[in-house]
Simulated scan of single mutants.
Amino acid sequence: MKILVCITNVPDTTSKITFTDNNTRLNKAGVQYIIGPYDDYALARGVELKEKTGGTLTVLHVGEADAEPQIRKALAIGADDAIRINAEPLDSYFTAVQIAAIAREENYDLILMGRESIDYNSGVVHGMVGEMLGINSYSPVMKLELEGSTATITREIDGGKEILKANLPLVLGCQEPIAEWKIPNMRGIMTARTKPLKVVEPVATEEMSAPVAYSLPAPKGACKMIPAAEAETLIRLLQTEAKVL
């Protein structure tokens, strides 16, 4: 079993975000980065499956050298080796092309990633990769079991859940509760230092989009507290100020 887990390098949700270059680029100064939370779920389930079925688990990241601490953390959690495609992930299409190029060379049985990154939240990379490789993709996957070359998948759908069976190879976008996040132990941290991390250059691809500008959401407005006995006042404010009635 060859498993590939794709991870993103995203700002911690507690980081203060600003922009530079006339609001066309994220200002990385002072920003704390982490593995994307949904990717953490994918990585945790990938490690569990590797331990259960044997084989190898490779971590893949499309990004620059500043992401290597997060890649090493993934190695400490249980990945056997890692690949970093040395390029800024310009958009979902670019990222998908790079992942598909590596996957096509290595013939992975299972490709796992988060259902979406928490910075751009596009949620389309897994579908694009599946299309480019000509294999099935499903998301968001909440449960995954393997029996030989058959996967039993539980995924969230509008109004409920869907359970289905599909043959490998597959591309899956993962979310909780597929697995519990894993914290690297000291032995894992030490062995991660010697695990192979291969850096490759990106394949050429067409630029499909480019950011024009970024902006922060509007600040939250003041909160007015209305006593429970003054329902008429609340209704009037909802009509005249909030304009939701």
Results as ranks from 00 to 15, higher is better:
residue 99 I to N: 08
residue 191 T to D: 10
residue 182 K to L: 07
residue 206 E to K: 03
residue 14 T to Q: 09
residue 145 E to M: 09
residue 34 I to C: 03
residue 204 A to C: 06
residue 128 M to Q: 06
residue 37 P to N: 03
residue 198 K to G: 08
residue 207 E to S: 14
residue 58 T to V: 01
residue 65 A to G: 12
residue 146 L to S: 06
residue 221 G to L: 13
residue 232 E to I: 14
residue 130 G to N: 14
residue 7 I to C: 13
residue 37 P to C: 08
residue 163 I to G: 02
residue 137 S to K: 00
residue 78 G to A: 00
residue 158 D to I: 05
residue 179 A to S: 09
residue 9 N to L: 05
residue 105 E to T: 12
residue 49 L to D: 13
residue 169 P to K: 04
residue 204 A to R: 09
residue 218 A to R: 15
residue 101 A to F: 10
residue 215 S to M: 13
residue 136 N to D: 15
residue 191 T to I: 11
residue 104 R to W: 09
residue 28 K to S: 06
residue 143 K to N: 11
residue 119 D to I: 03
residue 161 K to W: 15
residue 225 M to G: 11
residue 182 K to Y: 04
residue 149 S to R: 10
residue 29 A to I: 11
residue 86 N to H: 07
residue 238 L to K: 07
residue 149 S to V: 15
residue 236 R to I: 12
residue 36 G to N: 02
residue 93 Y to G: 03
residue 158 D to A: 11
residue 169 P to V: 02
residue 186 M to D: 13
residue 141 V to F: 02
residue 115 R to L: 04
residue 107 N to I: 07
residue 35 I to Y: 01
residue 134 G to D: 11
residue 181 W to M: 12
residue 33 Y to G: 08
residue 216 L to P: 08
residue 41 Y to A: 00
residue 160 G to R: 01
residue 151 A to Q: 07
residue 217 P to L: 12
residue 110 L to N: 05
residue 138 Y to T: 15
residue 71 I to S: 01
residue 163 I to N: 01
residue 58 T to Y: 00
residue 38 Y to R: 00
residue 235 I to R: 14
residue 33 Y to P: 05
residue 43 L to H: 00
residue 30 G to H: 08
residue 85 I to M: 02
residue 41 Y to M: 00
residue 136 N to S: 11
residue 216 L to Y: 10
residue 55 G to T: 05
residue 182 K to H: 02
residue 55 G to A: 06
residue 60 L to E: 11
residue 37 P to H: 02
residue 193 R to C: 10
residue 57 L to T: 01
residue 115 R to I: 09
residue 90 L to G: 08
residue 192 A to N: 06
residue 46 G to T: 00
residue 169 P to W: 12
residue 147 E to V: 07
residue 180 E to A: 06
residue 154 T to N: 01
residue 116 E to S: 05
residue 227 P to S: 14
residue 49 L to E: 10
residue 16 K to S: 14
residue 19 F to W: 06
residue 155 R to C: 01
residue 161 K to A: 03
residue 177 P to N: 04
residue 119 D to P: 05
residue 130 G to T: 15
residue 234 L to E: 15
residue 61 H to T: 14
residue 209 S to G: 10
residue 175 Q to N: 03
residue 87 A to Y: 05
residue 129 V to T: 06
residue 127 G to R: 05
residue 120 Y to L: 08
residue 137 S to L: 06
residue 130 G to P: 15
residue 36 G to A: 02
residue 21 D to P: 08
residue 54 G to W: 05
residue 64 E to G: 03
residue 39 D to Y: 00
residue 213 A to N: 05
residue 105 E to Q: 15
residue 133 L to M: 07
residue 131 E to M: 10
residue 29 A to C: 04
residue 53 T to S: 13
residue 182 K to I: 04
residue 7 I to P: 09
residue 184 P to S: 01
residue 173 G to L: 01
residue 163 I to E: 06
residue 132 M to F: 14
residue 29 A to F: 09
residue 118 I to K: 01
residue 233 T to Q: 13
residue 234 L to V: 14
residue 52 K to H: 12
residue 49 L to W: 05
residue 221 G to Y: 09
residue 52 K to T: 15
residue 181 W to E: 12
residue 142 M to I: 09
residue 23 N to Y: 04
residue 83 I to M: 06
residue 119 D to R: 02
residue 242 A to N: 09
